[in-house]
Design a protein around this nucleic acid. Structure first.
Length: 314
DNA sequence: CGCCTTTGACCAGCGC
DNA sequence: GCGCTGGTCAAAGGCG
């Protein structure tokens, strides 16, 4: 199942929250920020900020609704697929173990072709594939979760390292037939009993993209989780908290929480909270968003978190 | 000393 | 049965 066709996980961390509203051109917004700090009286400044907050809250609500609709569409499609597979068992190309390799190669090609790898802005994509669940019946539980993460790196960077926060031990490397770039095999070394494996290989289509294939589920908490709120350490968190990704890099913590649908009450409370908090300089926001979008680790972590959530829901 | 990477060897699945 | 291929093992060496 190609989740990416249903949920666009590409990152667009544009720091300007007004972008989608098309109500105020960027230049105007910037000039407003300058004016807010210099010329406007306090009453007008407060009014403008409240207006801004209302807009942001409205946009937040809109995005939440979009996400809910996407999840509902995904569930509906998945149920239809299940029904189809049940009605037509013969059409399930992966039900026979004898086709293991063939199925794998086809699914890999499908994934390579099917994923919309954004070559222009370096977005990473992730997906979970159910199509090869029954490749190895004996290891069904171990291999039940397979996700693929695309990470953009420097094309000149030959190291097959995908920083996702976990500890990995490399146990092999092979050059495969359909890809001139070597494939590296990793095992999770954080917990000895953790069955998770990872394969990393440079994409044959785009050499600057690393394709990391995760097999299995971690049976331990995320190694960096305890430090997630530490402002002194650059850290990432994902995994145990569904669809939540935190990243702190020597500054304020940015948290993306896609788990809970938000009610208007929540938005109102959030707005009140924001009013109480001091205004955040626009250039800092832009700087943080810029650094985040350039950070492949953050993208990989977010992609892994989202794909992990999708798999968990299954 | 412990952990990690490297790398050649080995094993099993699959097609012919 | 044989050869090809992907995946894994394990010895050797490097590094902190």
């Amino acid at each position: 199942m190609e989740y990416t066709s249903l949920v666009d996980t590409s990152l667009d961390l544009n720091s300007n929250p007004l972008r989608l509203l098309d109500e105020a051109p960027k230049r105007d917004v910037q000039s407003n920020f300058i004016e807010l700090g210099t010329k406007l009286p306090v009453k007008e400044e407060t009014g403008a900020m409240v207006e801004e907050l209302n807009r942001v809250s409205a946009e937040n609500k809109k995005l939440t609704e979009m996400l809910t609709v996407m999840c509902q569409n995904y569930d509906a499609l998945r149920n239809r697929l299940k029904e189809y597979v049940i009605k037509n068992p013969g059409t399930d190309q992966t039900t026979t173990a004898s086709r293991k390799r063939k199925a794998e190669s086809t699914t890999q090609n499908n994934n390579n072709n099917g994923h919309n790898i954004d070559a222009t802005n370096g977005n990473s994509e992730s997906s979970s594939s159910e199509e090869d669940w029954s490749k190895k019946p004996k290891e069904e539980h171990i291999k039940a979760t397979i996700s693929r993460v695309y990470v953009r790196t420097e094309a000149s960077d030959t190291s097959l390292i995908v920083k996702d926060g976990y500890q990995w031990r490399k146990y092999g490397q092979k050059v495969t037939r359909d890809n001139p770039f070597p494939r590296a095999y990793f095992k999770c070394s954080f917990a000895p009993s953790c069955p998770v494996k990872k394969k990393v290989q440079r994409s044959v289509e785009d050499q600057s993209v690393l394709v990391a294939t995760y097999e299995g589920e971690h049976n331990h908490s995320h190694p960096s989780k305890p430090d997630a709120n530490s402002a002194s350490n650059r850290c990432m968190t994902l995994g145990s908290v569904p669809c939540s990704a935190s990243l702190c890099s020597s500054g304020p913590t940015i948290t993306l929480d896609l788990t809970k649908p938000r009610s208007s009450d929540d938005d109102a409370k959030e707005s009140n909270r924001r009013i109480e908090s001091p205004p955040f300089p626009q250039f800092l926001v832009e700087q943080m968003a810029s650094s985040l979008t350039k950070d492949p680790s953050f993208k990989a972590a977010l992609a892994a978190a989202i794909s992990g959530r999708i798999v968990q829901n299954n």
